[in-house]
Each structure stands twice: as structure tokens, then as C-alpha cells.
Design a protein around this nucleic acid. Structure first.
Lengths: 407, 407
DNA sequence: GATTTTTTTCTCGACAGTCGAGAAATTTAC
DNA sequence: GTAAATTTCTCGACTGTCGAGAAAAAAATC
């Protein structure tokens, strides 16, 4: 609102709107675009003609003769309009996916992460090599790569692609913009992994509920704890955020966390923390770098058989999560919480603690327990979130930069 | 972005932009409006002509002959374009202010709150009477009142003017929209008091820092604890929120709060909580309804003389605030914290605890201590926040509803 | 006092965008 | 083969912004 509007801006916005509906509903005919966007038929003609001339969309060749009347011509994104590389950084591997402008996966491979000590700098080189390899395998011109969308666990700068803190590299910041600028002219974006999960779940839920959808939180349980929140803004857009939930203070002077601080939520609810409690190791013990899931499965099995201290470890983790979630809800609003990540396999053991922890707060006592649901397939959701966000960014960039010139 | 744009919308936005710059910089000439808004001179002519015809702005009669050349004609809001009633609800009184469209205070009076038990319903009637009285005193037509802007401590619904929870009425919800609809055609908005403080401080700081301003939190200390946050959005607008900070969980199963829950921040940092700790009353004692400030002053005096338990009461309050703030910052970002309200007189005693409480978190250890500042004149800031928000709302409504018809 | 300079405001034509209505295109039904 | 149905395309009207330059009006200069 601080900045002026112009008629050109109207066209830009409406062009992006057309591309967005094309994304959401697949190939559409002139009439359908008009229906979905509420733009007049004449305007749709003008916009599609421009986008077609700019080689962003194309008319679909074959159309099923659906009824009588002049047959529809479907518009769809030109797949060769540009490409997107999705980089998903996880604790043990980095996955590279090449996606075309229509959202179709073209190539994918993973590279194992070397757990070498001289971390960040070397890791960045690895990513640069990985990206080169994507190009080499697919024989796509580097110019055609419009966006590199990266995700990681940890804390991300909201405006620049800088990984501020991560469970892997700690405070060794990584500025991907800086690292990739010499080689790539593509734009680089970086998002927290659980933010993408929330974005994907939010988009799915909005497709079902429509305007009834208000907000949603995604909680990822694993070696570390992630939280993503998506909320509708007043203008009909979405606002997503990835609070530093895992390292929010749970209890002053509490258990020692991997990050070096005491009392973080993760120091109670991360896998290593559950292990520590179950084995009655003192809470100020420097936590294990990595915990095999099999180890935790054993504790879970014992807990399910009624072993007291094992059950307590999970309950305490649940309490930390519940208290933390209650604080998040106090600061935002009541919203459904989707629980995801490898830790969901212990949800039967965590649940009671989570609910108890939530129930200890004013907010939950007053407005009631938020809906808790378990969602599987975190990896798919992360990728889906990447596509949602990245392709929207590309649509916007391509319209802003490219349409006026035409070809 | 979900909705289409049109050329009419462009005019609306730019008209609002003109009105907003007129608000920020006072009466302006054609040229100055053009400079500030970056709209072309011709567009400014068109827009001001429309606004003038619609009786929203007027040409200022007398202008200082500032230099040579054709003298400037200043545009200013027409003061009789419409009126705003500001209602500030505090624990012991309700203040009514009548303000004209230019932001000038016309009339103001306060009515003492009766502390009667049959609370909410009766209180609403009092407000209705108060509003009638404003009209009667000023002889302004009710039609001309465009907006009633109400503020209170407590939790407010973000989309409707409904007081969800307040220290005064507890969970007795008050729907001001519903209560005032029969009598008033004016729009009704309701905001949390500390949110308005944050909004006012944010506007002030942005006037100084310009684009460097990112975000700010206002913390109000008193019988209850309030928090307001203002942040710049990516589009250049502002997002304000008033988290339920006072009743965010500080410590599970902690001290009993006025709200009936255990462990709220207020149950450690509210005035009654400090009193309770200083007198070593058990933490599950039902807290005093109201604490005379003189009582707290005595404790503070003792604390300053080195009395151990009195000092501890303030330190514990500071810790609760600091821990809570650290959690807020974990969920948002590092930002300056402006401390306001009657509790600032004890800031010397609270400070150490607040800083210690902040320092116990990962976020502060990593990014450093946020700037803490004490701000006096909370009442002035509340009113300023009212004006900022309410007049902006009026500008928008008036342009959307009124300009096309003209007179 | 007339003329020039300077500054501000106003006006005009060009251009961009959206919209409604109706023409053109193209298929199915009879 | 013709009518009906349906979709796409095109045209003129309307609204908006912008740049350039004309008009207005005061101070400076001669």
C-alpha cells in the first residue's frame, strides 16, 4: 500500500493470476480460465495471447471433443519455458530434482552427505558439484534454469537464502546466494523444511475447504524438531513461517541441548533427548550426535510393555512439545496441528504428554484442545511444498521480467 | 493475489495513497503529493479533483507565499468529512474522544467504571450511553460518525470486534459489533491496547528510520501484562498483532493466575503476583483482584534498600518476562522491545531478571540481547495508535465507498 | 511599470488495461 | 443440409496513468 499502482501492474497481477489457476486446475480452456479468475473473456484472450507470444504457455494440440459446439482449446504451461532445481538437504543425504516449468519431474538423484568435520565450506562445494551434475545429466542449458529451491532443517533468514543455524552446521552460516552467484544466474531461494510441509498441507486443505481454511501448523518430529505455520492473510494470500521452535526455551536451566543452550524443547523431545531420559543419563550430558532409530524403537517397545522409565521419557517429550505448542498457539491462534516426521511412529507414546502439555495453558483451557492429526509421507510433502512455492515464484518472475518484450 | 485486479482498483489504491501521504506529512501542495507518492502530476490532478468533488479534501485558503513562482495551493482533509469516536477502556474508567477527519481532538471525557458484579451486559450499556453522550455534547449528526475505535486490555478477535477474554470480564465475551449495530451505522473496530502502543511506536520509528525499520515489540507492565508486535510485511505494509502474552504458559503447574490457569506469565509478573511473592503467600492463593500501586511502591522501596525477598519478587517477575520474551523472539525474530505501562517505574528492579531470562534462550545466545528501552506516556501512545489505525481505515472505506458517486 | 524568470497547476493527447456485446468459428443434433 | 449449441475472437466504450507543454501567478530585473 506504500507504493503506487498502475495499469501495467494490473496486467501483471492478472497474468500471474491466470498462470496460478493454470497451476491449480491443470490445462484449462479459455472459458474455464474466465470462470475461475472472474476475468472477462476479452481479458483472458488478451492475456493468453501475450503469454503465448512470450512462449510461456501453449495451446494443447489434442482435445477430447467433449460435447457439441466449438471445441475447447486447452492452454497449458510450455514445459520448455524454464526449469527448476529442487535441493532437499537432509541429515544423511542431499537430493537433487530437476523439474520442468509444468511441474513435471525430469531427473532425480541423491548424494550421501559426507560427515566430515570441516563442514560448511566443503558442503557448499558439494552442492555446487551436485548442481553441475544435474545439468550434465539432463543436457539442459544453464540459462534455462530459472530457480534453485533449497530446503534444510534449521533456521533460515526470511528475506535472503541464508541458513542461519542448522542442526548439521550449527552457527556456521551458509549463504547460498553468495555461494551460487558466480556459477548460476538463476534465483536462489531457501526454506525451512517444515515450513514447506506446512505450505503443502495448507494448500491441500484449502483445495478441500476453500475459504473455510484459516491456518495450520506442521510439527516435524525426529532427531530435531521443526515447526511450520501457514495462515491466510486478510487479502486472501498466505503467510508462512518457520519459527525456531526446536530451540525455543522449554524450561530455564533445563537439559543440555545439542545447540549448547540449556532447556530447549529439542533437549526434551529430540530423539537423543528421549534416549538420554530413558537411560537416566544426567541432563547436562553432552548429547549424542546421532541416534539410530533402531535404538529408539527398542525403548518404545519397552515403554509399550509398561517399562516405567521408558514410558516416562516419551511422556516428558510429549509434555515439552505440548507446552511449546501451547505457547505458539497463545502467540498466534488456535489451529490444527499436523504431526509428521519419523517420530510419528511413537505418537501413541507421545500423545498423552502432548495433550497434557497443551492442556496446562490458559489458551487451550479457554478455547479447547486443537485438532491433532498424524500425517505420513513427510518427504512427499516437502517436495510438494517446494513445487508450490517455487513455481509460484517462477510465474511471478517470468511475468514481471518477460512478457512485455514478447519473443 | 487470489483476486483479480482492475483499473478502478488502481484508482482506489492511488487515492488511498494520496490520503495516506496527506495524513503523514500534513497539508501538501500538488507538487509535494506528486513527489511523495511518485505519481505523475497529471494523476495527482485527477485524483485530487475527484477527492475534492467528493468533499473529502479541500484546498487550503491561505498559503504562505513561500518563494517566487506561482503560489502553492495546499490540500488538506475536510474536517467535516466525517468523525471518529475513540473509546479507551481501562481498568477504572472509560475514556471517550471525538475526533474529526483531520485527526483533531474535538471533545473528550471519562466515565468511571462501576465495579459492579453483573459485569459485561451492564458495561456494554454504559458504553452505549457514553457514545450517545458524545453526540449530545458535540451536536454532531450520528450519520457523520464513520468509525468507532475501541481498545481494551485482553484478547481480541482479529477479524471481528469481539473481546474474547479480558482481565475485567474474564471469558464473558463482548461483541461490540452486535451491541452497537442497532444504534450506530458506523463501523466498529476493536484492538488490544498494547497492539496500539506497538503500532504507534512502529509508525514513529519508521518516520525516523525509514526503510530500515523492520519490527518492534511493545511490552506493557501493570496489573496485567500486554504485548504488541508490529512488523513490516514484504509488500511494504505493516502487520500488527497482540499475542496472548500475559497468559502464555511460563511454567507448567506454576503459580495460580487470575484467569484460573496455573503458570501464566502474569502469575509471576503482574502486580498482584509480585505482591504475592514478596509477602511469601503460597503460589496457589487466589490472587488479589486489585493491588494499589502504593502497596507495590513500598515493596519496591524495600527491594531497593536490599531487602532480599522483595528484590526476589521483582527478579522473579523479570525472569518470567525475559523467558516469555525469548519465546516470542524465537517464534518471530530479534526485535527491539519497548517497555511501557505503570510497571516501568520498577524497571531498575526488573531489568536484571528480564535480561537473565532472555539470556537463557538459544535465540538470544546466538543473535545477542535485543535492545530494551523504556517508553513513558503509554496513554498518549494508545491514543496515537488509535488515530493511526482508525483514520487509515476511514480513508480506505471512504474511498472504496464514496468517490465514484461524487456528490 | 513592463518584462523576464521561476515555480506551480492544469490540460491534452497517447497509451495500457478491462469489459460487454456481438460476430465468427466449429461441432453435434435432427 | 440446416439449426442449435458452445467456444473463441474482435470491436468499441470506458477508466486509468503518464509526459509534455500550456496557463497561471508571483518575484526579480531592468
Amino acid at each position: 500500500m506504500l507504493t503506487k499502482s498502475s495499469t501495467e501492474l494490473v496486467r501483471q497481477r492478472n497474468s500471474v493470476l491466470v498462470l496460478a489457476t493454470l497451476r491449480r486446475h491443470g490445462p484449462l480452456a479459455h472459458t474455464e480460465i474466465s470462470d475461475h479468475t472472474r476475468l472477462s473473456s476479452a481479458t483472458v484472450s488478451a492475456i493468453t495471447a501475450d503469454l503465448e507470444k512470450a512462449e510461456i504457455i501453449e495451446k494443447s494440440e489434442q482435445q477430447a471433443a467433449s460435447g457439441r459446439g466449438r471445441p475447447r482449446v486447452l492452454f497449458r504451461q510450455r514445459r520448455d519455458c524454464g526449469y527448476l532445481i529442487v535441493v532437499i538437504i537432509s541429515s544423511d543425504a542431499v537430493q537433487y530434482s530437476l523439474v520442468d516449468y509444468s511441474g513435471k519431474l525430469i531427473d532425480r538423484f541423491s548424494e550421501e552427505r559426507s560427515h566430515d568435520p570441516d563442514g560448511a565450506a566443503r558442503f557448499v562445494n558439494g552442492v555446487r558439484e551436485g548442481l553441475s551434475r544435474v545439468l550434465a545429466r539432463s543436457r539442459i542449458s544453464q540459462e534455462k534454469v530459472l530457480l534453485i529451491s533449497i530446503s534444510s532443517k534449521g533456521l533460515v533468514n526470511s528475506s535472503e537464502p541464508v541458513l542461519v543455524w542448522s542442526p548439521i552446521f550449527g552457527s556456521d552460516q551458509i549463504d547460498f546466494e553468495l555461494a551460487l552467484k558466480p556459477d548460476w544466474k538463476a534465483k536462489v531461494i531457501l526454506d525451512n523444511e517444515t515450513l514447506l510441509v506446512a505450505a503443502a498441507l495448507g494448500a491441500r486443505e484449502e483445495n478441500v475447504k476453500g475459504a473455510d481454511f484459516r491456518s495450520l501448523a506442521a510439527l516435524s518430529l525426529g532427531h530435531s524438531i521443526g515447526l511450520g505455520i501457514i495462515r491466510r492473510t486478510s487479502h486472501g494470500g498466505h503467510e508462512v513461517s518457520a519459527p525456531n521452535f526446536g530451540h525455543m526455551l522449554h524450561m530455564a536451566n533445563g537439559g543440555l541441548c545439542r545447540c549448547g543452550t540449556r532447556g530447549c524443547i529439542e533437549a526434551y523431545a529430540g530423539f537423543y533427548a528421549i534416549l538420554r531420559t530413558a537411560f537416566e543419563v544426567p541432563l547436562d550430558t553432552i548429547p549424542a550426535k546421532f541416534v539410530p532409530v533402531a535404538e529408539l524403537d527398542k525403548i518404545a517397545a519397552r515403554a509399550r510393555q509398561g517399562h516405567r522409565i521408558s514410558g516416562f521419557a516419551f511422556r516428558q517429550a510429549g509434555l515439552a512439545l505440548g507446552n511449546g505448542l501451547s505457547r505458539v498457539l497463545s502467540l498466534t491462534e488456535r489451529m490444527p496441528i499436523a504431526i509428521t516426521g519419523p517420530g510419528t511412529r511413537y505418537y501413541d507414546l507421545l500423545r498423552q504428554g502432548i495433550e497434557e502439555g497443551l492442556g496446562q495453558s490458559h489458551m487451550v483451557r479457554m478455547e479447547g484442545m486443537p485438532e491433532l492429526r498424524v500425517v505420513a509421507d513427510e518427504q512427499i510433502l516437502v517436495f510438494e511444498g517446494h513445487l508450490n512455492r517455487a513455481l509460484a515464484v517462477i510465474d511471478e518472475d517470468i511475468v514481471v521480467a518477460g512478457v512485455q518484450g514478447g519473443d
